[in-house]
Design a protein around this nucleic acid. Structure first.
Lengths: 338, 338
DNA sequence: AGCAATTTTGACATCGATGTCAAAATTCGT
DNA sequence: ACGAATTTTGACATCGATGTCAAAATTGCT
């Protein structure tokens, strides 16, 4: 297929390439009839601007990067999908870059994508959105970025959140309303700040109900299914068995659920279990797991919108670019009256 | 951060930009000592070639596209991860493009990525790798592509497979060896050719064992968890209850497993269940599901290797670019003696 | 040493778009 | 209808690399 260039369009429409460029980019200063002619010719020839030439001359790449720690997780898939759809909406493209901080020289990989690809912006997913060194690399390269669920509100960048604290609080209140008093809590890894916020919400709700948190029933996992299995064992071995387990994410809740089944503890009759995330397998389990749906795709889409907003490039510090999106409690079969 | 260009490097090394270009691209005809000097300067200045300028002049984009139907699935995540890592290895980048054929005008979206981005190659995941119209778009645009697990061996493109037929045969033989005779089979959607190959393998193994397939215990699902639930009901309602269910993918196997648990049918004592894919939740279930691991990441990585191989661009029809990778049977708790 | 063959090098054009800025066309006011 | 103000248009340079090809340097041979 011979490539159609802007010159071809210009020639056929009887105008200069520059005018065609104006029409393509929706700029002012083109007479309506000429604009129409050009648009017709563009359609006729099925012309598509060459993204590389455009980037080279305009110093915009129409490319956004999604930087993510573990691109295989279900979480990553949701974030990516949300970003992808919104990019398409905006005529941008998305480049996914895994950031494996275990590997020596990861910094260079990041720098290479930034300087080689001239990304117009980047989306940083948790937990790497809290990595000061990484943020520094972006700042040095002058690439604007939006953080998803960071620990601290960033000063000079966009951010999109959900209210982990409030959500965990609601979940705890729900368990309390079911009559549970001995509610165990499984924390996530310390590196994930969202985990800490969820714990806060849990503690606050317990305190509000006038209940003390049993620190023996507060265990730290690593967000993996396996750690849920193991910590579930520990919790069920406790002298005062909890009547409910609130895990910081669904994978660990699933692990705890399986442990309960193995040991013949009926869920939800003898033990309620709830998680956080609403991953696909929380629906596939039996009973299905009560959880909190994070607006992952929506947060990613919002991040894209922020990045492509010209106002953002002018003033990244504008608080209008720090958004909080709504979560939802998903009540399912794994929780019941105490 | 001021951008370092090839001219800066050239000036500092006391050579022409062209020579620097030669060094960067590992071309011949550069005296060793000059090559070394240039490399030193490149490192000193931390120079990275501008990908856009490079693509514009060389008509290579160093960009590969991954075209996929449902980018949120666990399957997609594995494929993407494999492709991503290999791209990084090869200094390419990966652009993920969802192809939603439900949506009007999807063809234009695909064309736009091809002509706008000048992709050096594309990876087509199932089931869209079997879409003749889609393949035509790539052919028209002159973008070489590699198919993952297509129905038919392509004539003029690369392809990467696993042997679905043999794998399903092995699984069936395993069930037979456990003493099962009434083995139900849950098919996938007709649009997924892999499903048909798996069914073939099952039928062949049954025939080889001298057993007739009970067509009443052969039901078609749509690869979803829900369809596994429903078809599980139907199978357990059969007058001659099967002693084993072989589902065409793990999600449906999980559905059948949940149905069995709901109805109090013990797995694997009263009923064996096995799936295909080895998705994450097949490990999260209880009992864990016996399944077949597809080399998804490996297939994607192999696809990348094929696409970046200069020999491939010269002769896409070379049979060396049609690879079959090995699968693995994963024996877990959901299967046992009849 | 002298000349041909070969290797190394760089000048220059090019890829396809956009930014700048001045020229041409149009509108407006009187 | 005329000049000023404004809008529309296009010529030209530019972004940063690579392809082409001829010039310069090196090597090999007698």
């Amino acid at each position: 297929m011979k490539t159609v260039t802007i010159k071809d369009v210009a020639a056929r429409a009887g105008v200069s390439p520059k005018t065609v460029s104006r029409v393509i980019n929706g700029e002012d200063h083109v007479r309506p009839e000429i604009r129409e002619t050009v648009q017709r010719v563009v359609a006729e020839l099925n012309y598509r601007p060459n993204a590389f030439a455009r980037s080279l001359s305009s110093s915009r790449s129409y490319l956004l990067g999604l930087f993510i720690d573990d691109p295989v997780s279900g979480y990553a898939a949701e974030v990516q999908h949300g970003a992808l759809l919104q990019c398409r909406e905006r005529s941008y493209h998305l480049v996914v870059e895994p950031v494996d901080r275990q590997r020596a020289g990861w910094q260079d990989h990041v720098r290479a994508s930034l300087s080689g690809l001239r990304l117009d912006g980047a989306i940083l997913a948790p937990p790497i959105c809290d990595d000061a060194e990484l943020l520094g690399i972006f700042a040095d390269a002058g690439v604007p970025y939006v953080l998803i669920g960071p620990s601290y509100p960033p000063r000079d960048s966009g951010a999109v959140w959900m209210d982990d604290r409030a959500a965990a609080g609601e979940m705890t209140e729900y368990l309390l309303s079911l009559g549970h008093r001995r509610i165990a809590f499984i924390q996530g890894p310390e590196s994930h700040s969202a985990s800490a916020r969820r714990e806060e919400g849990y503690r606050a709700a317990m305190k509000a109900a006038g209940l003390a948190v049993n620190e023996d029933a507060m265990l730290r996992g690593d967000f993996s299914f396996r750690s849920g299995l193991e910590l579930g064992e520990l919790l069920l071995d406790l002298p005062e068995t909890p009547t409910a387990i609130f895990a910081c994410n669904d994978d660990m809740a699933l692990g705890a659920l399986i442990t309960a089944m193995k040991r013949g503890v009926a869920v939800p009759d003898a033990l309620s279990i709830c998680g956080f995330d609403d991953v696909a397998s929380s629906r596939a389990a039996w009973p299905q797991i009560t959880t909190i749906r994070q607006p992952n795709a929506e947060m990613a889409a919002a991040a894209v919108d922020i990045l492509v907003d010209p106002a953002f490039r002018k003033d990244c510090a504008d608080p209008a670019f720090r958004l909080m999106l709504a979560h939802a409690m998903i009540l399912r079969g794994s929780t019941g009256p105490a």
